[in-house]
C-alpha cells in the first residue's frame, strides 16, 4: 500500500504536471474532428483535487466523468470535494473497477498513478485496451524514479554499495516483472540509475503490453485495430515521471485521424523519444518580461532599465526552456478564493 500523493502535495502546484495537463487538453481539443467532445467520457484518478476533471469539463464540456479512488477510508472527503455532481466516484482499485465498467462510448482514460510500474499497471493496460471503443484516448503516468535507500556510509564501501544496488534491482524486478539484467546495469550505458534509463525500461514493458493486448484483441475482430502513440512525456516535479499514451482506432478512422493533425503539436511523440517538460525557475516579474517579448529572438529582447542584456539577468538556459513551453506555463499566486 502506498500513501496517496494527494496527502503530500497539491497537484495543481506542480508546474510540470500543470503544463502536461494543458498540453493534453490542447491535444484532446483536436478530437473534435472525430466526435463532439461532449460525447466522450473521461476516466481518471481525481484524488481530492479533481484538477483534471475541472479542466476537462470546463474546457471540453465533458459531462460523463468517472473518478476511480482507491482510498475507501476517506470516502466522505472525496465525495465532499467532488467539483461537479456529474463526476461519479468509483471506490476501489483500478484493477477491480476498470473490468467492471461498460465501454460503450468513446473514452479519454488517464491512469495517473502515484506509484511505479507493476503487475497491476499491466493488468489495467490490458483491461482498458481490451475494451475501449475506437477513437478513444488512453494514457498513463507512472513514477520512474529509483529510490535508493543507501546511506553515505554504503557509498564509501564500493563492494557494499554494489551489493545494495543489486538487491534493489532484484526487488524492482520482482515488483514490476521487469527483467533488468543485474550483471549489466552497472555499465554506464545500461546503468538504470542514470538519467532516464529506468524510464526507457518501463516504456519498453508498457509498449510490449500494449502491443500484446492489441494483438490479442485483433484475434477477435474483423477490422484490425491500431494503437497510435501520441504522448511520451518526461517531467520531474520532485520525482521522475513518465506519461505514455495514444489513440485507438480501426480502419474506419483512417481518413479522420490525419485531419486531427496531432503531429502539429510539437510535444506529441509517436516514437521512443520522450518530450521532456523542463520547467525553468522564474519569478513573476521575469515571466512578465519574457512574455512581453516572446515573439522576438532571445538576443533581440530589449535590455532592461539598468541596461543589462536579459541573458545576463536570467540564465540563458531558463529563457530557452521558457520559450519552449511559455504558452502552457503556470503562474502561481496566493489568492483567497
Amino acid at each position: 500500500m502506498k500513501m496517496s500523493s494527494y496527502r503530500k502535495i497539491n497537484y495543481a502546484l506542480r508546474p510540470a504536471k500543470n503544463i502536461e495537463r494543458k498540453m493534453l487538453l490542447e491535444t484532446f481539443r483536436k478530437l473534435s474532428f472525430i466526435d463532439n467532445l461532449s460525447n466522450y467520457r473521461y476516466i481518471g484518478f481525481g484524488s481530492t483535487y479533481f484538477t483534471d476533471f475541472e479542466l476537462f469539463h470546463r474546457e471540453l464540456n465533458i459531462i460523463n466523468m468517472i473518478s476511480i479512488e482507491k482510498d475507501k477510508g476517506s470516502r466522505p472527503r472525496f465525495e465532499f470535494n467532488r467539483p461537479y455532481s456529474h463526476v461519479k466516484i468509483e471506490f476501489g482499485n483500478s484493477n477491480d473497477i476498470l473490468p467492471r465498467l461498460e465501454y460503450k462510448q468513446k473514452d479519454i482514460i488517464w491512469l495517473d498513478y502515484d506509484g511505479q510500474l507493476n503487475k497491476s499497471t499491466l493488468d489495467d493496460i490490458d483491461t482498458v485496451l481490451s475494451n475501449i471503443e475506437m477513437g478513444s484516448i488512453f494514457l498513463l503516468s507512472i513514477n520512474v524514479e529509483l529510490h535508493l535507500s543507501l546511506c553515505d556510509e554504503d557509498k564509501k564501501d564500493p563492494k557494499k554499495f554494489i551489493k545494495k544496488q543489486k538487491e534493489y534491482i532484484d526487488t524492482i524486478n520482482q515488483q514490476t516483472g521487469l527483467k533488468i539484467d543485474i550483471s549489466k546495469f552497472l555499465e554506464p550505458k545500461n546503468n538504470i540509475f542514470k538519467e532516464w534509463n529506468f524510464s526507457k525500461k518501463c516504456q519498453n514493458i508498457i509498449n510490449t503490453q500494449i502491443e500484446k493486448t492489441i494483438q490479442d484483441r485483433n484475434n477477435t475482430s474483423e477490422d484490425k485495430i491500431k494503437y497510435q502513440q501520441l504522448f511520451n512525456f518526461h517531467y520531474n516535479d520532485g520525482a521522475k515521471m513518465l506519461t505514455i499514451g495514444g489513440i485507438i482506432s480501426d480502419s474506419s478512422f483512417d481518413e479522420i485521424i490525419p485531419k486531427c493533425k496531432f503531429e502539429e503539436l510539437f510535444f506529441t511523440s509517436s516514437t521512443d523519444e520522450s518530450f521532456l517538460i523542463d520547467t525553468p525557475n522564474l519569478t513573476y516579474r521575469e515571466i512578465k518580461y519574457l512574455n512581453k517579448y516572446i515573439s522576438l529572438d532571445i538576443n533581440k529582447i530589449p535590455k532592461d532599465g539598468s541596461n543589462k542584456k536579459i541573458d545576463s539577468i536570467i540564465p540563458l538556459n531558463d529563457i530557452k526552456k521558457f520559450h519552449k513551453i511559455y504558452r502552457y506555463f503556470p503562474t502561481f499566486t496566493e489568492a483567497n478564493l
Binding site: M1, K2, G73, S149, E167, Y168, T171
Partner: peptide, 11 residues
C-alpha cells in the same frame, strides 16, 4: 480514518 505507510527495505 487513517493513512498508509510505504518504505523500501532490502530482500
Amino acid at each position: 480514518n487513517g493513512g498508509t505507510i510505504s518504505y523500501w527495505k532490502s530482500n
